[in-house]
Write a protein that binds this DNA or RNA. Structure first.
Lengths: 162, 162
DNA sequence: GAAATTACGTCAATAGTACTGACATAATCT
DNA sequence: AGATTATGTCAGTACTATTGACGTAATTTC
């Protein structure tokens, strides 16, 4: 169905609409802080992978360090993120969320999670797994390593407050 | 699994990565034309809903007419899109793709469709329907009318070349 | 038929996010 | 000691988006 010229227009369009609305919820909240989507992404990944270095963050986001600079500086200046000198390599800066940063990251994730829950409302674990599998398969194969689907990597890595 | 603080971080992240890579394919092609993502979106919807008016396009894209102006002008100047005076209301401008515009829209959609096909490789119609249902459910309910999943609306609307 | 509204176009100013290129500093590696 | 690496920063540019204001032509309303 809705495959014209062998092109899957239906899912192409659905993906556009779905992502547009998916990002609209946090955008509202971010506006109150004078932040944009870039701040959201940085905060999200610092929160999810506390202690990641600047280089690792750049690699995950696939942006340049000049693009990151302003956004990261603002998050540090507003006390949402802190930098600690790397323990092994003192050139590195490990990034950690503050309590304030974690709270904001959570506030931003909440409506998105709510939207996902609603979309999977009448679905069981099978359907959920299928959606996860589909989304993962949409990611470039060589980049799937970046994805941290399981919670294993997180559980032992509580660095507390900084 | 991977639901911390009751937040579905797994799908939030997967959605980010999936959409990033999903848009990266056409971005490469667009660069050759000096176009950006905005041009892609306009071209896509003009192609999908030939004859739609400027106001309808703004409503679908959820941007302002000032944002659309430059992009649409460039697409018209480069002979990818044409404007025709509305038959009923002559204030309106109906937008149609040219053959050139259709060719570009198709070239942009091809790698995206290929990616979707690969992601659904070992899936049947059931799984495909499930993914469609999920994506549709992610869209704001009041905006689902915009989505043109079926091909019914398209089939009889071939306006030919302009 | 005059007045209000609508559809569209355009000018000006601003913001957010991204880019390339270049250069500096400190730390680590060879 | 010299090369490389990790990070920071300065300068310039591009793309997409915004708000606000104004103009024109066509349609609707009274």
């Amino acid at each position: 169905m809705s495959v014209e010229d062998g092109i899957d227009f239906a899912i192409i369009e659905l993906f556009f609409f779905a992502y547009r609305d998916f990002t609209s919820d946090p955008d509202q909240i971010l506006a109150d802080y004078g932040f944009g989507r870039a701040h959201h992404r940085v905060l999200h990944f610092v929160n999810r992978r506390p202690g990641l270095t600047v280089a690792e963050l750049l690699d995950v986001l696939k942006i340049t360090k000049q693009s990151l600079a302003r956004v990261l500086k603002q998050l540090i200046d507003t006390d949402h993120v802190v930098q600690l000198q790397g323990p092994r390599d003192r050139r590195q800066r490990e990034l950690y969320p503050t309590a304030k940063g974690r709270a904001l990251a959570l506030a931003l994730a909440r409506p998105q999670s709510r939207r996902i829950r609603a979309a999977l409302e009448d679905s069981g674990a099978t359907e959920r797994a299928l959606v996860e599998r589909f989304l993962e398969a949409m990611v470039n194969p060589e980049l799937r390593a970046q994805i941290d689907v399981g919670s294993a990597k997180m559980s032992g890595k509580s660095h507390g407050e900084h």
